[in-house]
Every structure is written in structure tokens, then in C-alpha cells.
Amino acid sequence: MKVKLFDIFKIFFIIGIQLLGGGYVIVPLLQKYIVEERKWLTEEELVDYFAMSQCIPGIIAGNIAIFSGYKARKFLGSIMAILGIVTPSFICIILLANLLTSVVSNPIVHNAFWGIRISVIILILVTIKDIWKKSVNSKFTYFMYFFILISLIILPVSPTVIIIVSALLAILHSKLEGRKDA
């Protein structure tokens, strides 16, 4: 069954409204609305899109939206997805910009956003827990996870480098495995 274009716009609009505290929140939001409720994507696809979005220039949340929209309804779907993500922030900024300038310095708002940082950490943790089983489940993938995590902690490497290095390691791994089988 074809996904309705307006539906794509609507869902990404709803996700856009809830995108508070940084773009990474889009991963749990997509998981809830698109993977679990609507099944436009599988969990693996979401993880793959997240990885690829890291190495494409541009805003990560926007890139994942384009990927997901494309999966749902090809080219037009991706346009609907990016429009849906952009519209809430657009409306907010145009209507509230002047008002918000005074709100920013308000200590209560400040404290609320301090708390939201903790929420974002929890959302990230829950997301990792969900995608873990399908991503880290063999000797090689365990090695990759810890290898990359440790290099990220020790060195200030950019995500792009990380994704490229992991792709190369994965190719090397499959070549070695292939030789073993042969």
C-alpha cells in the first residue's frame, strides 16, 4: 500500500515539533513514529540511515528525514519529510523570535533546558538499548563497538572519519572471513 504524501508531511511535522534539545532526539522519535507505529522503516534501516547521515554534509536530523521520506515514497516523500521537519521551526522562529529573545535569559527556561539535557541522555541510552541487539551481536561487531567508542573517547575524531574507517574495517573483515571459508 502506498503511503500518503500528506501523511509523511504530517508525521515529520509532529516529529519537528518534538525535536527539542538537539537533532539526535530524532532517532528515538523516528523509532517511535516510523519504525514501531507505521513500519515504514525497519530498525536496521534506521541505524543505517543514522550512520550515513553522519557523513553527508548538512543537518543530521534533516538528512535522516530525507532518507526516511525516500524510503516511504521515493523522491516526493523525501521532499515532504524535509518540509515537515523544517515547517515547525520556521513558524516558531518567525512568530516567536522577538518574544523568545527575552525568554532566553529567564532562569526558569534555563533550568528547564538543563533538565532537558538529562532527558536527551536518557533518550539516547534507550535508543542504544533498542538498536543494540540488531547491531552488536557477534565477535566482530563487539570489537567494532568498543574499538570505536574508545577511539572516540581518546581522540577528537570526526564522525565522518569514524564511519569511513568502520566501512574499511568491515570490508577487511569480510575478506578475511571469506578466505577462511574457502
Binding site: V47, A51, Y142, S166, A167
Partner: peptide, 22 residues
Amino acid sequence: DIFLGLRPASCALLTSIGLQLF
């Protein structure tokens, strides 16, 4: 094969973002 390596890398990236924020 490539995605077999990218998925744990994605997990590691998310973990490091969470750690850094924390």
C-alpha cells in the same frame, strides 16, 4: 558487509554523544 561494521559504529557514536552530554 559494510553495514555490519557501520551499525556498531553508529551505536558507539551515540554512546559517545550521550557520555559527552552527561
